[in-house]
Design a protein around this nucleic acid. Structure first.
Lengths: 117, 117
DNA sequence: TCTATATTTGAACATATGTTCAAATATTCT
DNA sequence: AGAATATTTGAACATATGTTCAAATATAGA
Protein backbone atom coordinates (compact mmCIF):
# COMPACT_ATOMS: atom_id res chain seq x y z
CA UNK A 1 0.00 0.00 0.00
CA UNK A 2 2.22 2.78 -1.21
CA UNK A 3 -0.41 5.34 -2.18
CA UNK A 4 -2.91 6.69 0.27
CA UNK A 5 -6.35 8.11 -0.34
CA UNK A 6 -8.41 9.92 2.21
CA UNK A 7 -11.42 8.06 3.44
CA UNK A 8 -14.35 10.40 3.87
CA UNK A 9 -16.42 10.09 7.00
CA UNK A 10 -19.53 9.03 5.11
CA UNK A 11 -17.54 6.20 3.58
CA UNK A 12 -16.21 5.03 6.92
CA UNK A 13 -19.57 3.62 8.04
CA UNK A 14 -19.94 1.67 4.82
CA UNK A 15 -16.40 0.37 5.01
CA UNK A 16 -16.74 -0.89 8.57
CA UNK A 17 -20.08 -2.52 7.76
CA UNK A 18 -18.63 -4.25 4.71
CA UNK A 19 -15.50 -5.37 6.59
CA UNK A 20 -17.66 -7.04 9.23
CA UNK A 21 -19.49 -9.12 6.64
CA UNK A 22 -16.44 -10.20 4.65
CA UNK A 23 -15.50 -13.89 4.69
CA UNK A 24 -12.27 -14.74 6.52
CA UNK A 25 -9.02 -14.82 4.62
CA UNK A 26 -9.08 -18.61 4.87
CA UNK A 27 -12.48 -18.85 3.19
CA UNK A 28 -11.44 -16.28 0.61
CA UNK A 29 -8.44 -18.44 -0.28
CA UNK A 30 -10.41 -21.66 -0.46
CA UNK A 31 -13.10 -20.15 -2.64
CA UNK A 32 -10.61 -18.49 -4.95
CA UNK A 33 -8.73 -21.78 -5.27
CA UNK A 34 -12.01 -23.38 -6.25
CA UNK A 35 -12.67 -20.79 -8.96
CA UNK A 36 -9.06 -20.86 -10.03
CA UNK A 37 -9.42 -24.56 -10.78
CA UNK A 38 -12.25 -23.78 -13.18
CA UNK A 39 -10.47 -20.74 -14.55
CA UNK A 40 -8.32 -22.47 -17.11
CA UNK A 41 -9.72 -23.51 -20.50
CA UNK A 42 -8.14 -26.97 -20.48
CA UNK A 43 -9.36 -27.82 -17.01
CA UNK A 44 -12.79 -26.36 -17.67
CA UNK A 45 -13.03 -28.42 -20.82
CA UNK A 46 -12.31 -31.53 -18.78
CA UNK A 47 -14.95 -30.50 -16.26
CA UNK A 48 -17.52 -29.87 -19.00
CA UNK A 49 -16.82 -33.36 -20.32
CA UNK A 50 -17.28 -34.84 -16.86
CA UNK A 51 -20.65 -33.10 -16.60
CA UNK A 52 -21.82 -35.55 -19.26
CA UNK A 53 -20.25 -38.79 -18.15
CA UNK A 54 -17.67 -40.58 -16.05
CA UNK A 55 -14.43 -40.75 -18.07
CA UNK A 56 -10.92 -42.12 -17.79
CA UNK A 57 -7.67 -40.22 -18.33
CA UNK A 58 -7.28 -41.64 -21.82
CA UNK A 59 -10.84 -40.69 -22.82
CA UNK A 60 -10.28 -37.18 -21.52
CA UNK A 61 -7.05 -36.88 -23.46
CA UNK A 62 -8.92 -37.84 -26.60
CA UNK A 63 -11.80 -35.44 -25.92
CA UNK A 64 -9.72 -32.45 -24.91
CA UNK A 65 -6.90 -32.81 -27.44
CA UNK A 66 -4.36 -32.63 -24.65
CA UNK A 67 -1.58 -35.14 -24.08
CA UNK A 68 -2.31 -37.86 -21.53
CA UNK A 69 0.35 -36.32 -19.31
CA UNK A 70 -1.14 -32.83 -19.50
CA UNK A 71 -4.58 -34.24 -18.67
CA UNK A 72 -3.18 -36.14 -15.73
CA UNK A 73 -1.48 -33.03 -14.36
CA UNK A 74 -4.73 -31.08 -14.65
CA UNK A 75 -6.74 -33.90 -13.10
CA UNK A 76 -4.44 -33.81 -10.10
CA UNK A 77 -5.29 -30.15 -9.60
CA UNK A 78 -9.03 -30.85 -9.95
CA UNK A 79 -8.69 -33.73 -7.49
CA UNK A 80 -6.76 -31.60 -4.97
CA UNK A 81 -9.40 -28.89 -5.17
CA UNK A 82 -12.18 -31.43 -4.57
CA UNK A 83 -13.80 -30.82 -7.93
CA UNK A 84 -13.47 -34.39 -9.14
CA UNK A 85 -13.24 -37.80 -7.53
CA UNK A 86 -12.03 -41.02 -9.08
CA UNK A 87 -12.32 -44.79 -8.94
CA UNK A 88 -9.84 -47.31 -10.23
CA UNK A 89 -10.93 -50.11 -12.53
CA UNK A 90 -8.07 -52.28 -13.68
CA UNK A 91 -5.60 -50.18 -15.58
CA UNK A 92 -8.08 -47.35 -15.94
CA UNK A 93 -8.83 -44.52 -13.55
CA UNK A 94 -12.32 -43.08 -13.98
CA UNK A 95 -13.03 -39.51 -12.97
CA UNK A 96 -16.34 -37.83 -12.18
CA UNK A 97 -17.53 -34.54 -10.71
CA UNK A 98 -17.44 -34.68 -6.94
CA UNK A 99 -20.81 -33.05 -6.25
CA UNK A 100 -23.78 -31.27 -7.71
CA UNK A 101 -22.70 -27.78 -6.72
CA UNK A 102 -20.21 -27.94 -9.54
CA UNK A 103 -22.94 -28.58 -12.09
CA UNK A 104 -25.12 -25.84 -10.62
CA UNK A 105 -22.33 -23.33 -10.81
CA UNK A 106 -21.40 -24.29 -14.35
CA UNK A 107 -24.99 -23.94 -15.48
CA UNK A 108 -25.31 -20.46 -14.01
CA UNK A 109 -21.95 -19.43 -15.48
CA UNK A 110 -23.06 -20.60 -18.91
CA UNK A 111 -26.28 -18.58 -18.59
CA UNK A 112 -24.29 -15.57 -17.46
CA UNK A 113 -21.97 -15.77 -20.45
CA UNK A 114 -24.77 -16.29 -22.93
CA UNK A 115 -26.71 -13.33 -21.56
CA UNK A 116 -24.14 -10.64 -22.18
CA UNK A 117 -24.21 -11.73 -25.84
CA UNK B 1 -0.29 -35.03 -27.68
CA UNK B 2 2.92 -37.01 -27.57
CA UNK B 3 1.67 -40.10 -25.81
CA UNK B 4 -1.08 -42.22 -27.19
CA UNK B 5 -3.49 -44.50 -25.40
CA UNK B 6 -5.79 -46.96 -27.08
CA UNK B 7 -9.41 -46.09 -27.00
CA UNK B 8 -11.51 -49.17 -26.45
CA UNK B 9 -14.58 -49.64 -28.56
CA UNK B 10 -16.92 -49.41 -25.59
CA UNK B 11 -15.38 -46.05 -24.75
CA UNK B 12 -15.78 -44.72 -28.28
CA UNK B 13 -19.56 -44.37 -27.98
CA UNK B 14 -19.22 -42.43 -24.76
CA UNK B 15 -16.54 -40.21 -26.18
CA UNK B 16 -18.51 -39.28 -29.28
CA UNK B 17 -21.60 -38.60 -27.19
CA UNK B 18 -19.68 -36.37 -24.81
CA UNK B 19 -17.93 -34.53 -27.64
CA UNK B 20 -21.27 -33.69 -29.19
CA UNK B 21 -22.50 -32.05 -26.00
CA UNK B 22 -19.36 -30.07 -25.22
CA UNK B 23 -19.57 -26.27 -25.39
CA UNK B 24 -17.64 -24.66 -28.24
CA UNK B 25 -14.08 -23.57 -27.67
CA UNK B 26 -15.27 -19.97 -27.68
CA UNK B 27 -17.73 -20.59 -24.85
CA UNK B 28 -15.13 -22.63 -23.00
CA UNK B 29 -12.75 -19.68 -23.17
CA UNK B 30 -15.31 -17.12 -22.09
CA UNK B 31 -16.48 -19.20 -19.14
CA UNK B 32 -12.95 -19.98 -18.02
CA UNK B 33 -12.09 -16.28 -18.24
CA UNK B 34 -15.07 -15.61 -16.03
CA UNK B 35 -13.94 -18.14 -13.41
CA UNK B 36 -10.35 -17.00 -13.76
CA UNK B 37 -11.43 -13.52 -12.73
CA UNK B 38 -12.84 -14.92 -9.48
CA UNK B 39 -9.89 -17.27 -9.05
CA UNK B 40 -7.54 -14.85 -7.39
CA UNK B 41 -7.82 -14.06 -3.66
CA UNK B 42 -7.41 -10.30 -4.09
CA UNK B 43 -10.00 -10.01 -6.82
CA UNK B 44 -12.38 -12.34 -5.00
CA UNK B 45 -12.00 -10.25 -1.87
CA UNK B 46 -12.99 -7.18 -3.87
CA UNK B 47 -15.97 -9.04 -5.28
CA UNK B 48 -17.06 -10.22 -1.82
CA UNK B 49 -16.93 -6.60 -0.66
CA UNK B 50 -19.02 -5.50 -3.63
CA UNK B 51 -21.62 -8.13 -2.70
CA UNK B 52 -22.35 -5.96 0.33
CA UNK B 53 -22.27 -2.47 -1.12
CA UNK B 54 -21.26 -0.17 -3.94
CA UNK B 55 -17.70 1.01 -3.25
CA UNK B 56 -15.07 3.29 -4.75
CA UNK B 57 -11.46 2.40 -5.55
CA UNK B 58 -10.23 4.08 -2.39
CA UNK B 59 -12.74 2.22 -0.19
CA UNK B 60 -11.75 -1.05 -1.79
CA UNK B 61 -8.08 -0.34 -1.21
CA UNK B 62 -8.85 0.24 2.44
CA UNK B 63 -10.98 -2.90 2.76
CA UNK B 64 -8.67 -5.24 0.89
CA UNK B 65 -5.33 -3.96 2.20
CA UNK B 66 -4.06 -3.58 -1.34
CA UNK B 67 -2.52 -0.43 -2.76
CA UNK B 68 -4.86 1.83 -4.70
CA UNK B 69 -2.91 0.97 -7.83
CA UNK B 70 -3.18 -2.78 -7.28
CA UNK B 71 -6.93 -2.44 -6.70
CA UNK B 72 -7.31 -0.40 -9.85
CA UNK B 73 -5.45 -2.98 -11.92
CA UNK B 74 -7.66 -5.73 -10.55
CA UNK B 75 -10.81 -3.69 -11.10
CA UNK B 76 -9.87 -3.31 -14.73
CA UNK B 77 -9.79 -7.08 -15.06
CA UNK B 78 -13.15 -7.42 -13.30
CA UNK B 79 -14.58 -4.72 -15.57
CA UNK B 80 -13.22 -6.36 -18.74
CA UNK B 81 -14.71 -9.69 -17.71
CA UNK B 82 -18.11 -8.05 -17.09
CA UNK B 83 -18.11 -8.90 -13.41
CA UNK B 84 -18.38 -5.31 -12.23
CA UNK B 85 -19.74 -2.08 -13.62
CA UNK B 86 -18.98 1.44 -12.47
CA UNK B 87 -20.35 4.94 -12.29
CA UNK B 88 -18.39 8.15 -11.90
CA UNK B 89 -19.26 10.62 -9.21
CA UNK B 90 -16.92 13.58 -9.07
CA UNK B 91 -13.44 12.39 -8.35
CA UNK B 92 -14.71 8.99 -7.24
CA UNK B 93 -15.48 5.95 -9.32
CA UNK B 94 -18.00 3.63 -7.71
CA UNK B 95 -18.01 -0.06 -8.56
CA UNK B 96 -20.75 -2.64 -8.16
CA UNK B 97 -21.44 -6.22 -9.24
CA UNK B 98 -22.79 -6.27 -12.76
CA UNK B 99 -25.60 -8.80 -12.24
CA UNK B 100 -27.17 -11.26 -9.87
CA UNK B 101 -25.60 -14.33 -11.40
CA UNK B 102 -22.40 -13.33 -9.68
CA UNK B 103 -24.06 -13.35 -6.27
CA UNK B 104 -25.78 -16.67 -6.99
CA UNK B 105 -22.52 -18.28 -7.97
CA UNK B 106 -20.65 -16.91 -4.99
CA UNK B 107 -23.32 -18.18 -2.62
CA UNK B 108 -23.17 -21.70 -4.05
CA UNK B 109 -19.38 -21.65 -4.00
CA UNK B 110 -19.42 -20.65 -0.34
CA UNK B 111 -21.81 -23.51 0.44
CA UNK B 112 -19.64 -25.89 -1.52
CA UNK B 113 -16.52 -24.91 0.42
CA UNK B 114 -18.24 -25.05 3.78
CA UNK B 115 -19.64 -28.51 3.07
CA UNK B 116 -16.38 -30.32 2.56
CA UNK B 117 -15.40 -29.09 6.05
C1' DT C 1 8.17 -63.45 -14.71
C1' DC C 2 7.99 -60.72 -18.83
C1' DT C 3 5.35 -57.61 -21.84
C1' DA C 4 2.00 -54.25 -22.96
C1' DT C 5 -0.93 -50.55 -21.72
C1' DA C 6 -2.72 -46.75 -18.54
C1' DT C 7 -1.50 -43.49 -15.56
C1' DT C 8 1.34 -40.60 -12.71
C1' DT C 9 5.35 -37.96 -11.62
C1' DG C 10 9.20 -34.54 -11.72
C1' DA C 11 12.28 -31.48 -14.12
C1' DA C 12 12.62 -28.02 -17.47
C1' DC C 13 11.08 -24.29 -20.02
C1' DA C 14 8.40 -20.65 -21.92
C1' DT C 15 4.56 -17.76 -20.89
C1' DA C 16 1.21 -15.50 -17.85
C1' DT C 17 0.17 -13.02 -13.64
C1' DG C 18 0.13 -9.73 -9.64
C1' DT C 19 2.26 -6.15 -7.34
C1' DT C 20 5.05 -2.00 -7.04
C1' DC C 21 6.65 2.33 -8.50
C1' DA C 22 6.54 6.52 -11.09
C1' DA C 23 4.08 9.13 -14.03
C1' DA C 24 -0.17 10.52 -16.45
C1' DT C 25 -5.32 11.83 -16.27
C1' DA C 26 -9.41 13.53 -14.35
C1' DT C 27 -12.09 16.27 -11.41
C1' DT C 28 -13.08 19.64 -7.88
C1' DC C 29 -12.19 23.69 -5.33
C1' DT C 30 -9.95 28.15 -4.50
C1' DA D 1 -5.08 28.93 -13.83
C1' DG D 2 -3.10 26.31 -9.98
C1' DA D 3 -3.34 23.05 -6.10
C1' DA D 4 -5.17 18.92 -4.15
C1' DT D 5 -7.16 14.43 -4.38
C1' DA D 6 -8.84 10.07 -6.85
C1' DT D 7 -7.95 7.12 -10.25
C1' DT D 8 -5.67 4.97 -14.10
C1' DT D 9 -1.80 3.48 -16.72
C1' DG D 10 2.62 1.30 -18.24
C1' DA D 11 7.09 -0.63 -17.31
C1' DA D 12 9.58 -3.67 -14.50
C1' DC D 13 10.19 -7.53 -11.77
C1' DA D 14 9.56 -11.65 -9.23
C1' DT D 15 6.59 -15.55 -8.90
C1' DA D 16 3.14 -18.84 -10.62
C1' DT D 17 1.36 -21.75 -14.27
C1' DG D 18 0.75 -25.10 -18.14
C1' DT D 19 2.79 -28.06 -21.28
C1' DT D 20 6.29 -31.28 -22.83
C1' DC D 21 9.45 -34.90 -22.32
C1' DA D 22 11.50 -38.78 -20.11
C1' DA D 23 11.16 -41.84 -16.62
C1' DA D 24 8.66 -44.21 -12.89
C1' DT D 25 4.41 -46.93 -11.21
C1' DA D 26 0.54 -49.82 -11.57
C1' DT D 27 -2.21 -53.41 -13.41
C1' DA D 28 -3.59 -57.19 -16.48
C1' DG D 29 -2.64 -60.93 -19.37
C1' DA D 30 0.56 -64.25 -21.72
Amino acid sequence: MAEVCEVHKQHMDKILKVKKKLPSQEIDLEVSDFFDALGNPSRLNIVFALMEDELCTCDLSNISNLSVSAVSHQLRILKDRKIVTYRKDGKNVFYRLSDNHIKDILKIALEHIKEDH
